[in-house]
């Protein structure tokens, strides 16, 4: 990865150290050593504070939110923040685990739109596809799904709709006797 002279390039272990120094031992729940996807898991309660620290702290300066990935593992939701620094040229993956919430209630997370503008649309998409409510987001309107869509499609237990807007979803497959060449 390209490095500038004089800039520090950190790895996730060093990052975890820095965060633990700043926020206490529990700030970083785990540092994934998997070389395929190095990742540091943050404590859910401190996530917003830690992310703010990452965005503004001089040695980190993670000013570019490349992606915000939401995953439904079945037991919990995970939000993975992929952050880059344009100055220091390092990149980090930070994972935050969220409770699924009681059935009927939504899972909540803190919005990071005040740190990175890119989060405006990223969080809107996750909110409508997973049903995670981002507290502090200016307007969690539907982005991709039509108005009146029921359910959260990207959740593991989602059932496909029977119909929408008067159109039946199902289309009968072509039966062999009707197929003609």
């Amino acid at each position: 990865m390209g490095q500038r002279k004089g800039s520090q390039v950190m790895d996730h272990a060093k990052l975890a150290e820095v965060l633990r120094d700043e926020f206490g031992k529990d700030a970083v729940a785990a540092v994934g050593g998997d070389p395929r996807f190095p990742c540091a898991e943050l404590a859910a309660g401190l996530a917003k504070k830690i992310l703010r620290f990452c965005a503004f702290e001089v040695s980190l300066k993670l000013d570019f939110l490349e992606d915000l990935i939401a995953v439904d593992t079945g037991e919990r939701f995970e939000l993975i923040y992929r952050l880059l620094s344009t100055q220091h040229r390092h990149r980090f993956n930070l994972r935050v685990a969220l409770d699924r919430g009681a059935p009927g209630a939504a899972a909540t997370a803190s919005s990071v739109t005040d740190l990175w503008r890119a989060a405006l649309c990223l969080e809107r998409e996750i909110a409508e596809l997973f049903g995670i409510v981002f507290e502090g987001h200016p307007s969690l309107d539907k982005l991709l799904l039509p108005e009146g869509w029921r359910g959260f499609p990207m959740r593991r237990d989602y059932e496909y709709p029977e119909d929408f807007g008067g159109i039946e979803h199902r289309r009968a497959p072509l039966r062999k006797e009707h197929a003609r060449n």
Binding site: L145, W149, P153, Y160, I167, H169, R170, R171, L174
Partner: peptide, 21 residues
């Protein structure tokens, strides 16, 4: 024509064919 790659068994938000409309 019929939904194709994004027919009703795969995609939740696609209409399976223009002739439905």
């Amino acid at each position: 024509n019929c939904g194709g790659l994004f027919s009703w068994e795969y995609s939740y938000s696609s209409v399976s064919g223009a002739d439905k409309i």
